[in-house]
């Protein structure tokens, strides 16, 4: 009796695992179960949440005032920068129009808060508190205030799972800001580092080079900071150099992340661009 029960449920688990691995049939039930189990995720987040709450209770009036002052001056500083940016963007788009290429679109963002971290140190994944109800989709790029964080890999109505760029299973196409060289940056698992793959021993890359997302692969938008090169080792006898980069985003520290929505108007713009190209020729 016991043995049959074990066999039955064991085989059922194996079949479910196979189906889950090869198809997406179980995604609906997974997201339904995720909603049902959300209280457990919230409970697991309570300790760190309450530590922050207690810190808030015990921070003095003076500290808070200083923090508000700091934030206000930062806000003014950023506002000025944005005003300048608006002018630059319109100028940039005008110039792009002259060159006959599609105008760059402003990305919309949605702020999400971290509610969980995958407990396995090998799997660099976090859970955020926005889901398909907020029109989050699988493959959506995720940023924080400093750079690219990762992409959404699993969505349920009120939460979603984000794979960080430092995970071993994650690669992001990048471009070196200084030399425009294009590479693929793969995560290395533990240690919050990225490794550039297939770097020829002869290319121009230095410590301190800024890497931006190149937009190839149509997954991540162009031009977001990804990382800074912090080690370049050309090994004699090896075809490729070992290049490591440190992510710009604070992968282990940011509590708030931004979900990027890129409007899909790009295709229309591209359709009209040949006309503008003719202008240039004439």
């Amino acid at each position: 009796m016991l043995g049959y029960q074990m066999l039955g449920l064991g085989v059922l688990s194996l079949v479910l695992g196979f189906v889950d691995h090869t198809t997406s049939w179980l995604d609906g039930s997974r997201s339904a179960l995720t909603i049902a189990l959300t209280p457990i995720v919230v409970m697991a987040d309570l300790p760190s949440r309450s530590v922050r709450g207690i810190q808030g209770v015990f921070s003095s009036r003076k500290d808070l005032r200083r923090r508000i002052n700091g934030l206000e001056s930062e806000l003014i500083f950023l506002r000025v920068k944005t005003e300048k940016m608006a002018a630059l963007i319109s100028e940039n788009n005008r110039l792009r129009g002259l060159l006959g290429s599609a105008a760059k679109l402003q990305d919309n963002v949605l702020v999400a808060e971290l509610i969980g971290v995958n407990p396995d140190p090998e799997e660099q994944e976090v859970v955020i508190d926005k889901g398909s109800e907020d029109s989050v989709f699988v493959g959506q790029p995720v940023l924080d205030s400093r750079g690219l964080v990762g992409q959404v890999v699993e969505v349920s109505p009120f939460s979603s799972r984000v794979l960080l760029i430092s995970d071993e299973r994650h690669s992001v196409p990048v471009q070196v800001l200084r030399s425009n060289l294009r590479f693929i940056a793969q995560g290395t698992g533990i240690g919050q580092q990225l490794e550039l793959q297939y770097v020829n021993s002869t290319v121009d890359i230095k410590v301190g080079d800024q890497l931006l997302s190149s937009g190839l692969g149509n997954r991540f938008p162009v031009g977001y900071p990804v990382g800074v090169v912090d080690k370049v080792a050309f090994k004699p006898g090896k075809p490729f150099a070992e290049v490591l980069a440190k992510p710009n985003a604070q992968l282990d520290r940011s509590r708030h992340v931004l979900l990027v929505f890129t409007e899909s108007r790009v295709s229309e713009e591209t359709n009209t661009s040949p006309g503008k190209g003719d202008d240039r020729g004439g």
Binding site: L12, G17, L37
Partner: peptide, 25 residues
Amino acid sequence: GILTAWLAGIAMDVLLGSLIGQHAL
């Protein structure tokens, strides 16, 4: 019994984002 273990395993698979059936098995 085994059924309780299986249910807990499915819940863990959903919570950790592993393949459904991995912890259950």
